Computed example of a mutant assay.
Amino acid sequence: MAITAAMVKELREITGAGMMDCKKALNKTEGNMDEAIEFLRKNGQAKAEKKAGRVAAEGLCSVKIEGNTAAMVEVNSETDFVAKNEVFQEFVASVASQVVKSNATTVEELLEEDWNEDASKKVKDALVDKIAVIGENLKIRRFVKVTSENGCVVSYVHGGGRIASIIEADTEVVNDEVKEALLNIAMQVAALNPKYISREEISAEHIAHEKEILLAQIMNDPKESQKPEKVIKGIVEGRVNKELKEVCLVDQVYVKAEDGKQTVAKYLEEVSKKVGATVTVKKMVRFETGEGIEKKEEDFAAEVAAQLNA
């Protein structure tokens, strides 16, 4: 059977596979579209196994909120180019939708679940299909679910999915004003990456350890070490407080503060007075795509040359 350009185009639109791969699949299956799709899936699975060892350090984060539950996922790709691909973006959003309904607590458990969009597949099968279509190693790296019992959850996604954050707040009043305020806090978390909500989360042992380090730094400084003990103690306290203001959300200067001085704690107090209910941040989660993954440095020109000479 003669394989026409229209047939290749149709198969490409269905599967997202490369033009030459589609032509080969149609030739192998004598123009049978269903068999060609199956051929590409099987061939793609073989490709997926070969690609599994490649470093996937790019990708996207996505958030799905249903009621008082928010799900945030990070799915990695090999290149930033793929992260801008609509097929990949839709897949990441689908994974977030899967997680918000899931009882899985690990990625391994999630991969073994039935895929919400096609119960005949597992999540891992849907992932393999996308690897075949996109042509890069893809990994569902991590996810988190946050459910509010006494308030609401709000999310913020920055840079098209490069950074995402979730805020859970306790509040007896949930209205547009409260949600807008929490969105601002979620933006704060995305931008300044606090490690703690408040100082209460930091152990006394950790603070004592930080003081020891700062004291050692001062004593190793020829000029500062000569200062009176009381002055040195004050310097240590001052530096510890400065560090805590940087790593504790409520102590940070609110990014939208008009005077450049208002803290997040003061901003929340202001909002609480306006709505007539105490608004308290109970939990915060922040994902940044690729954080902690060692990226492989590659010579793109050399890679292309190697493929041409293969």
Rank of each mutant, 00 (worst) to 15 (best):
2 A>N: 14
2 A>H: 09
3 I>A: 08
7 M>I: 00
8 V>Q: 05
8 V>D: 03
14 I>K: 15
16 G>K: 01
18 G>A: 07
20 M>I: 07
26 L>M: 10
26 L>N: 05
29 T>K: 04
29 T>L: 05
36 A>T: 06
38 E>R: 15
40 L>I: 08
42 K>I: 10
42 K>T: 13
44 G>Q: 04
44 G>D: 07
45 Q>H: 11
45 Q>M: 12
47 K>H: 02
47 K>S: 14
49 E>C: 00
52 A>D: 07
53 G>N: 13
57 A>S: 15
58 E>A: 13
59 G>A: 04
61 C>W: 00
61 C>S: 14
64 K>L: 10
65 I>S: 12
65 I>F: 09
68 N>S: 14
70 A>I: 09
71 A>M: 05
72 M>V: 02
74 E>A: 11
88 F>D: 07
90 E>A: 14
92 V>Q: 02
93 A>P: 07
94 S>V: 03
95 V>T: 02
95 V>W: 03
96 A>V: 10
100 V>H: 01
107 V>R: 10
111 L>D: 01
113 E>Y: 12
115 W>F: 14
117 E>P: 06
117 E>F: 14
118 D>C: 05
119 A>Y: 04
120 S>F: 03
125 D>I: 09
126 A>D: 04
127 L>P: 02
127 L>R: 05
129 D>S: 14
133 V>F: 07
134 I>A: 05
136 E>Q: 02
137 N>M: 08
137 N>D: 03
138 L>P: 04
141 R>T: 04
141 R>L: 05
148 S>W: 09
151 G>C: 02
152 C>I: 15
155 S>E: 13
158 H>Y: 07
162 R>H: 12
163 I>P: 00
167 I>S: 01
168 E>Q: 14
169 A>S: 03
172 E>F: 02
173 V>M: 01
174 V>W: 12
177 E>Y: 00
181 A>V: 02
183 L>K: 15
187 M>I: 09
187 M>C: 06
188 Q>Y: 09
189 V>L: 00
194 P>N: 10
196 Y>K: 13
196 Y>N: 09
197 I>N: 13
203 S>L: 08
205 E>F: 12
207 I>E: 03
209 H>V: 01
209 H>M: 08
215 L>N: 13
216 A>M: 10
219 M>Y: 11
220 N>Q: 08
221 D>N: 15
223 K>Y: 06
225 S>R: 09
226 Q>L: 11
228 P>E: 02
234 G>K: 12
234 G>P: 06
235 I>G: 02
237 E>R: 02
238 G>R: 04
240 V>Q: 07
243 E>Q: 11
246 E>D: 10
249 L>D: 06
250 V>R: 06
251 D>P: 01
251 D>C: 00
251 D>E: 13
252 Q>E: 14
259 D>W: 05
260 G>L: 01
262 Q>S: 06
263 T>I: 12
264 V>W: 05
265 A>Y: 08
268 L>E: 11
268 L>M: 15
271 V>E: 07
272 S>W: 10
273 K>T: 13
275 V>F: 03
276 G>E: 06
276 G>D: 07
282 K>Q: 12
282 K>M: 14
283 K>S: 10
283 K>N: 14
285 V>D: 02
288 E>V: 00
289 T>Y: 01
290 G>A: 01
295 K>V: 15
296 K>M: 09
297 E>Q: 13
299 D>S: 09
301 A>C: 10
303 E>N: 08
303 E>Q: 13
